[in-house]
């Protein structure tokens, strides 16, 4: 009688372990990194995708009149130029982790939705922070 429950619990735990360690998350990812995207570009042709990475320093151009935001998205390896129509969210800045929804067209990634991703690290400013903290975002994502 007891053996039955033991076996059952083991089976359930085994299935869950398989889910965790079996790499089942590949399709569940919320966004792709630019290098993943560029590797399989043909696959994502004409499909809406989400790209995630850091806003490359010194690449942000914002046209206030036409509400056009241009920047380069990078994961440290590959880079993708992004064009997003609309105002940037409050936390948008250079070096920030962002996720852009959209599709490729006319040589740039046309973003229809721009989300800012922040890290799980909380520090008061006086403590000083290193760019490494923000970098973790991308490293984790791999």
């Amino acid at each position: 009688m007891k053996a039955k429950y033991l076996v059952g619990v083991l089976v359930i735990l085994g299935a869950l372990a398989y889910m965790i360690f079996g790499g089942l998350g590949r399709n569940l990812v919320y966004f792709l990194t630019p290098s993943e995207y560029l590797q399989d570009q043909a696959k994502y042709q004409n499909r809406p995708v989400r790209l995630g990475g850091l806003v490359k320093e010194g690449t942000v151009q914002y046209d206030k009149d036409r509400l056009e935001l241009r920047f380069v998205l990078t994961d440290g390896v590959a880079e993708v130029p992004v064009l997003h129509r609309g105002t940037p969210p409050g936390m948008f800045k250079e070096g920030q982790g962002v996720v852009v929804e959209g599709r490729f067209g006319e040589g740039v990634f046309q973003g229809s939705n721009l989300l800012v991703k922040h890290s799980e690290t909380y520090q008061p400013p006086k403590e000083g922070w290193t760019p490494e903290d923000v970098r973790k975002l991308i490293e984790e994502a791999k």
């Binding site: 998350g25 966004f31 991703k117 890290s119 909380y122 008061p124 984790e140 994502a141």
Partner: peptide
């Protein structure tokens, strides 16, 4: 487990790491 928009745990119960002042 899955790459998400939500940040990971600041107090991580599985590793015991704390990312907070």
């Amino acid at each position: 487990w899955w790459r998400s928009l939500h940040q990971t745990q600041s107090i991580d119960l599985t590793t015991g790491k704390i990312h907070m002042a």
